[in-house]
Computed example of a mutant assay.
Amino acid sequence: MIRLGTRRSALATAQATLVADELRGRGHEVELVLITTTGDVNKAPLEQIGGTGIFVSALRDALLADEIDIAVHSLKDLPTAPIEGLTLGAIPVREDPRDVLVARDGLTLGELPPGAVIGTGSPRRVAQLDALGLGVECTGIRGNVDTRIRFVTEGKLDAVVLARAGLSRLGRLAEVTETLDPIQVLPAPGQGALGIECRADDTEVLAALAPLEDPATRAAVTAERQMLATLEAGCTAPVGALAEVVEGEDGPELWLRGALGQDDGVRRLSANGAVDDPESLGKALANELLERI
C-alpha cells in the first residue's frame, strides 16, 4: 500500500487523485491521506506568513516521520532548497502552464475598462499586469478556486487571474474568458507541473514512481526553479519563468524565458541551452537578469 499525502483542498485532492489513478493503473494499492498545512488554516496574505513552503511543510514533515510514502505538490509551491532525506521521485507530464483571466461579461484583459479591479495575490502577476499599462487595478485575494471566481460572479471584482492548470484539473475551463499569452504574463516557475516527493532511500516507491516521470517536463521546470533559486539569493523581486524543450538545428534544446519585476517595470530575457544541463541555463539567465537591476 502506498500512502499518498495531499492537502485537503479540492484542487490538491484532484491532483492527488490523478497520481493515485496512474499508480493504481499500474497495479499499486494507494490510500489518500489528507493533511492540513499552514497555508490552509492561516488566511493572512502570503507575504505576512512567509509564502515559501507554507503549503508543503506539513506534507514534508509527514514524509520524514514515515506517516506517508509520497506527497503530491503543485511544483510552483515547492521551495527550491532541497530537504535532506527527500527527493522528487517523479515529475509527470506538465499541464498548460499559462495564467488565465476569469472576467465579468466574458471580457478579455484588453477589453476591461481603465480602473477595472483584478484580484490576484501574486506579486509576479501584479508586476507584469502593471507593466502592460492598461490602467487596471490589482488587489490581493486569498482562497480556493471557488472563492476567487465567486468574487467575480458576485460583482465584487471585475476579474481574477488564476493558473490554467488548476482549472483544467477541476474541469472548469469553461469559466475562462482569456488565456494569457506568456509574452504578457510569464507564469510562476514550475506552474502547471506536479512534483511527487518521497523519501530518498525508499527504493520500492521510487521504482513505482519511475513510469510517471516525464524527462522534458523535469528539464524545463529544473531550469525555471534554478533561475528562481539564483534570483532568490540576489533579490526579493517577483519572478516569472517558462522553459520548453524545442527542436533546434542540432537536436532538442531548452529555451528559457524569464521576467523580473522591479519598481520601474519588468525586465525580460530569454536564453537557450542543453536539455541535459538545465541548471546551468537557469543560473545563467538569472545572473543576466540580476545584472540588469
Score class of each variant (00 low, 15 high):
173 L>Q: 13
168 S>F: 03
166 G>T: 01
129 L>G: 04
196 I>A: 01
258 G>P: 14
208 A>K: 07
206 L>F: 06
259 A>E: 02
221 V>I: 10
122 S>G: 08
145 V>A: 15
160 V>D: 00
120 T>W: 14
178 E>G: 07
151 F>G: 01
207 A>L: 06
242 L>I: 09
181 D>G: 04
157 L>Q: 11
180 L>S: 03
169 R>D: 10
243 A>D: 05
209 L>R: 08
195 G>R: 01
217 T>N: 02
169 R>Q: 15
230 T>W: 06
181 D>Q: 04
182 P>C: 08
229 A>C: 05
179 T>W: 03
247 E>N: 08
161 V>F: 10
156 K>P: 00
158 D>A: 06
123 P>C: 04
255 W>R: 15
156 K>W: 14
139 T>G: 06
167 L>W: 01
222 T>R: 07
210 A>M: 08
130 D>E: 15
242 L>G: 01
235 C>S: 10
188 A>Q: 04
209 L>Y: 07
171 G>W: 02
144 N>D: 15
141 I>A: 10
160 V>H: 05
171 G>C: 07
158 D>K: 11
225 R>H: 10
135 G>D: 09
162 L>H: 08
232 E>F: 03
145 V>I: 15
205 V>M: 02
222 T>C: 08
207 A>K: 13
179 T>P: 00
210 A>D: 09
121 G>A: 11
175 E>G: 03
126 V>H: 07
151 F>V: 00
211 P>Q: 08
210 A>H: 13
254 L>Y: 06
250 D>G: 11
142 R>I: 13
133 G>Y: 08
207 A>E: 13
187 P>N: 09
126 V>W: 02
219 A>W: 04
186 L>D: 04
260 L>K: 04
238 P>Q: 06
197 E>S: 02
185 V>T: 10
172 R>C: 05
161 V>M: 13
208 A>I: 02
187 P>K: 12
124 R>M: 14
166 G>I: 01
170 L>W: 01
126 V>K: 14
190 G>P: 04
233 A>F: 03
179 T>N: 00
121 G>N: 10
134 L>C: 03
129 L>T: 10
236 T>P: 00
189 P>N: 05
251 G>E: 05
236 T>G: 15
161 V>C: 11
194 L>S: 05
239 V>R: 00
173 L>A: 12
205 V>T: 14
236 T>W: 12
124 R>E: 11
248 G>E: 03
121 G>F: 12
257 R>K: 15
186 L>Y: 06
253 E>A: 10
199 R>C: 03
129 L>W: 12
146 D>I: 06
205 V>C: 03
221 V>G: 02
198 C>N: 02
236 T>R: 15
227 M>V: 09
226 Q>K: 14
254 L>Q: 04
